[in-house]
Design a protein around this nucleic acid. Sequence first.
DNA 1: TTGAAAGCGTTACCAG
DNA 2: CTGGTAACGCTTTCAA
Lengths: 371, 371
Amino acid sequence: METVKAMGEKKQSRRVSGRGGGSATILDLAEAAGVSIASVSRALNDSTKVSSALRRRVLRAADTLRYVPNAAARALASQSTYTIGAVVPTLENPSFAIGVEALQKRLAQNGYTLFVASSNYDLEQERRQVETLVTRGVDGIMLVGALHDPGLYDFLRQRKVPFVNTWVLSQDPKLPTIGFDNKKAAAEITNFLLDLGHKYFGVIAGLTKSNDRALERVKGIRQALRARGLVLTKECLIKRPYRIVDGQSAMRVLMQMKPRPSAVICGNDILAFGAMLECQGQGISIPHHVSVVGFDDLDLASQLVPPLTTIRVPADEIGQAAADYLLAATAQDQDIRLPEIKTPLVVRGSAAAPSTARYMALAAKHPPNSG
Amino acid sequence: METVKAMGEKKQSRRVSGRGGGSATILDLAEAAGVSIASVSRALNDSTKVSSALRRRVLRAADTLRYVPNAAARALASQSTYTIGAVVPTLENPSFAIGVEALQKRLAQNGYTLFVASSNYDLEQERRQVETLVTRGVDGIMLVGALHDPGLYDFLRQRKVPFVNTWVLSQDPKLPTIGFDNKKAAAEITNFLLDLGHKYFGVIAGLTKSNDRALERVKGIRQALRARGLVLTKECLIKRPYRIVDGQSAMRVLMQMKPRPSAVICGNDILAFGAMLECQGQGISIPHHVSVVGFDDLDLASQLVPPLTTIRVPADEIGQAAADYLLAATAQDQDIRLPEIKTPLVVRGSAAAPSTARYMALAAKHPPNSG
DNA sequence: TTGAAAGCGTTACCAG
DNA sequence: CTGGTAACGCTTTCAA
């Protein structure tokens, strides 16, 4: 008896000092509304199974006391944080920025808050960020690509944290992915150039280390060429970071080759933009002298002169679908749909059939190939 | 005695079922290492004031049990979450994406995790996002601009949550800001054009509703013009969303005016890019027929043809400085430095003196003004 | 429909 | 340097 009473007093003393530095808690509301904290909790959440009179009182109290719930406490008690984490290579790539933006928007609509971290295209940093997010108790994680640190998948599975790979399509059906087949899309745009009659190709790819999207795109190009009996030689494949200037310098190299490629395939629109600028600077006309194509369809692409032929990657759709997937996974939803993300070829003015005269001359000297 | 024993048993029984779905806790480590949970906590945090032998044991246990701390519990007990929140208008604007990227990077280096939310340039959404972040218990918040919902400042101050406004410089010295004087910078680039001899101006501004950066820029332009006796008329000031196509359409309108502006000032590089494209499409030569300048100095700017004269806004510096400020504020640091963010005028080829012949002709017909 | 009370996993204070 | 234990603010049975 003694003990019980002591406990009671202690609680009260805590409350007295409560308003010192902190803010109103559920306990304050309970007192103000003259109900138990259990009821307050219920009134604040399941507005059902609580008399509307009680709910009204509690809500009024919450309003006057300027009550702000404490997510940490809620998380601790309910074992669910209502947060999602996203780890992208970098937000400086507009595609990922747009994807994250869409993800956030959708999550916010559902009461979830988003943690964002970037990996700088480094698998170990990515794994560390994921560990941090798991420590934070996120209910789900969005990743980019399917190539991760060896320990990552185990870690996530062991901790039972739902996740989804994006910007790729999984070979392994057990891995949930929201994305598209980079290899296939790259092959498609390559075939488009092939069908136009091109036989001499140059490729400006993104860095393929730790980047399966870039790697798959190169594979797709190589495969499409091979199917037509062409080989992508080392000299014709230039890998560069995601920057305009790198597209320029790579194009410079390509345009000095003999024979000079009649078509240049870029791993993304930024590199393509650089490539186009280089041509403009050198007085090389696109698509008359050389065709250039990109990948992503950034806003920029349709505005360039000539407008860029590219593959459209709907980053916003990906982010949104990732949100939907993660939300469903968190809700223990059974059969979750993984929507198909379409990446259509967008034909614009930067690519055309090679000039016949030039090809005749070339063919006389060099066997048609890609390098 | 009885009671104590019962408690002990209860704890054990909990542990037995512990490994069912959840994960190792501090309690598991304590048992595995044969020490108290208090010591485990200390070993995990202040590596000092714990014998190295004990620390080693705990760390080994943590490793074998694959222990992952629970941030919610830590936050609840320590009253500090080690999280920071950022609310930006949208990540689709590369400036903000870059700023957030830098912020995140710096925070991660210091063990902080970042929540990101966007306001869509809407003050009420911004306030709601801030409320959510405060619910999450963030230790600090980065905001963009100094114009916020009326209740926002009160709310933040009352809850004692450190925050910092960015991309602006505060009129009010009590508001911490990491940024620059938009008005002054806009005036500077306007003066540059004025000094070149321009007398007929067109302005393509960003939307100024709920956007003090855009508004200040317009004010700066207007003020600089007025100082030279020129007036910015309604017709010469076109406000548009942040999109290339809007820059184009605005430029179209401007180029049909009589007299036609010899200089067009854009509120940001994206609009400037659109404006330049429109000229290119119409065969209007930049800077020969018209000068165009922007604001932000995106990567793009220096690569355009001609390269864009603009104001450099170092978004990465801003993000980084915001992180430093917030970290210091969280640490109750007293005199925190708010670094000066320099926004130099970057002179490139898109602006030049107006062609003399044209001005003579114009001056004969119209009084020099800006509309 | 409501209240009491047992946690949720850590931290931090207080003894020893 | 180490251990015991009371919070931290909320959710969630379990009874009433």
